[in-house]
Write a protein that binds this DNA or RNA. Structure first.
Lengths: 167, 167
DNA sequence: GCCATCATGTAATTAGTTACATGATTAG
DNA sequence: CTAATCATGTAACTAATTACATGATGGC
């Protein structure tokens, strides 16, 4: 189960409230993992029971800021270095791209155009994130990951354009 | 829900038994969707109830070959052309690559090397599939999808090598 | 005062995994 | 004849989504 490790990882980068975590899942981990608040709050409670996270601050609207404990850091390290990676994916976009070959030309073109628009938007989104990191002070962590996303999305865009020009 | 559309798609390409479908999920859709037999058999039954698949042959070991009906083809087309794509992913490997920046150098190098080995293996797997398609007669469907996989995995390998050389 | 958004939670349902179970066929 | 693999199914459990529910705060 990877939800808890994603939570531990995000909280290691930066202590957050449950609400902020839900947003960070869709920003930082948009291409990796999705979790909604109804999953995150119970998971934080479970992690707290197990001593892996703790409340380090309370703010307005009875919000609580969570941080990783030493036990949590140990568990995250164990996951990253010792646990056997689970490689299976669940990616509806990839299913669609696989199945696009089954469509007749007109439908295929329309589908490819929609996907192309998605890639362009994603490139823009990642470019903005990269610029923000570059403009910031400090260690520029995750700049590499953003760069990987940019390269992958670039490959996808090129591929879609080729498919379109042939369709 | 994408399982049923993956099933309809795979059966559109080639009628199969449930057993064959489980294998095709891990071969053709390895980088898109995973489903185990305990999910596939009930889904075939449900699709049959809804008139979207039918038994077109029976073989040894009481195996049954399933094919898509017109209603199934309609549903697949509707999914591909009209349904709003769900973009969220669930990809533990991507989570790991994101979190690798949190590790100290020695752990990081070890983690990157493991991922690099995975990419090399994946490149080999895809190269073999591409060669098989190229050697075959007929329309060479999905050759493009395999090529996309090769390009993406190539980008990943290069990125991992760069990260390693800097770690 | 009221609307948007921040913020947290639970309940009901659906999807997916792991474990259990069984029988048929083929290769050695 | 027996072990491996083919082939199908169900049961128990865990994970995830969708829907329901409530209250706080800040901007207008």
């Amino acid at each position: 189960m990877s939800l808890r490790h994603a939570v531990l990882g995000l909280l290691t980068v930066q202590p957050s409230t449950g609400y902020e975590l839900t947003q960070r899942f869709d920003k930082s981990l948009a291409n990796a993992w999705h979790a909604s608040h109804s999953q995150i709050y119970p998971e934080l409670a479970k992690l707290q029971d197990e001593g892996m996270v703790e409340v380090v601050g309370e703010g307005a609207r009875r919000s609580r800021t969570w941080a990783v404990t030493d036990a949590g850091r140990d568990e995250l390290r164990r996951f990253m270095t010792e646990a056997e990676p689970v490689r299976s994916q669940r990616n509806e976009t990839a299913v669609r791209w696989f199945l696009v070959d089954l469509l007749e030309p007109a439908d295929k073109r329309k589908a490819l155009e929609r996907e192309l628009a998605f890639c362009e938007a994603e490139l823009e989104r990642l470019t903005a994130i990269a610029a923000a990191i570059d403009a910031s002070e400090g260690p520029k962590r995750f700049r590499g990951t953003v760069d990987l996303g940019l390269r992958m999305t670039g490959v996808m865009r090129d591929w879609l354009q080729e498919q379109l020009s042939r369709a």
